[in-house]
């Protein structure tokens, strides 16, 4: 059965205005959404990510490594990989997830995947690395992602590797915004996510230091975010 990734893209500044009671209801709603998917054997893997304000974006421009804070306005805050018969079922899954106003839910087909659901059962900290690429159009973006894929295939530190997933291009996905679903648009002049992988790291500094040496940041950028044990 085809697999899809549900990406929850939050506006962290807006989320901070939520009352504790609203936050609790959303967290409990999210937990029961996940539980239902798990009980229905639809859920493959799901994680929550710690705030973008703690994360970093790393890229290299003309050989110079640039490190900045991960943007908080459109921050990947959680994801779930689900098995779905088709778009109708996937859209239904995305629709049922309770989210605060300002949240975008994106659904993208999984191209290939090697993830493990027990990432956070391992001791130590786990970091998610979002693979970002920016290009003038979707075809060029796909080329960037292919190039990254080819150059990094065997480039992960073995002991730390906790799996990863590559996504199909945005066009083949859907976005839920303001409660309505749209075809997945390609957003020009933006860094668009093409995949996600997971490594055990001792700290964000160690993760950034590793990222800076990889082809990911030459071809595109990496957004590094700690996985939130939830």
């Amino acid at each position: 059965m085809p697999e899809l990734m549900v990406l929850v893209v939050s506006n962290e500044a807006r989320d901070e205005e939520l009352t504790p009671a609203q936050t609790r209801d959303l967290l409990e709603g999210h937990a029961s959404w996940e539980r239902e998917l798990r009980d229905a054997s639809v859920l493959v893997d799901a994680e929550r990510l710690r705030p973008a304000s703690e994360g970093r974006r790393v890229r290299a421009r003309a050989g110079e490594v640039e490190v900045e804070r991960a943007p908080a306005e459109e921050a990947l805050s959680a994801y779930a990989i689900v098995r779905a018969e088709g778009w109708e079922q996937a859209q239904e899954v995305a629709r049922r997830l309770p989210t605060p106003p300002g949240t975008v839910v994106e659904v993208r087909p999984v191209m290939k995947r090697h993830t493990r659901p027990d990432k956070t059962s391992q001791p130590g900290r786990v970091f998610a690395f979002g693979v970002l690429g920016s290009a003038p159009n979707e075809e060029a973006w796909i080329e960037v992602m292919d190039r990254i894929d080819a150059r990094t295939r065997n480039g992960f530190p073995g002991e730390r590797w906790l799996g990863g997933v590559r996504l199909e291009a945005p066009r083949s996905g859907r976005r839920r915004e303001h409660g309505a679903l749209f075809d997945g648009p390609f957003l020009e002049s933006k860094e668009v996510i093409g995949g996600l992988f997971f490594l055990r790291m001792q700290s964000i500094d160690e993760a950034v230091a590793w990222a800076a040496t990889t082809p990911f940041v030459e071809e595109g950028a990496l957004e590094i975010r700690e996985v939130w044990r939830s």
Binding site: P20, T23, R229, S230
Partner: peptide, 19 residues
């Protein structure tokens, strides 16, 4: 004036404890 970030931090941890 209660710290909402810390409250969320606690709520997430509590949900893991439950799970």
């Amino acid at each position: 004036r209660w710290d909402r970030r810390l409250i969320k931090e606690g709520l997430v941890a509590l949900s893991r404890a439950r799970r």
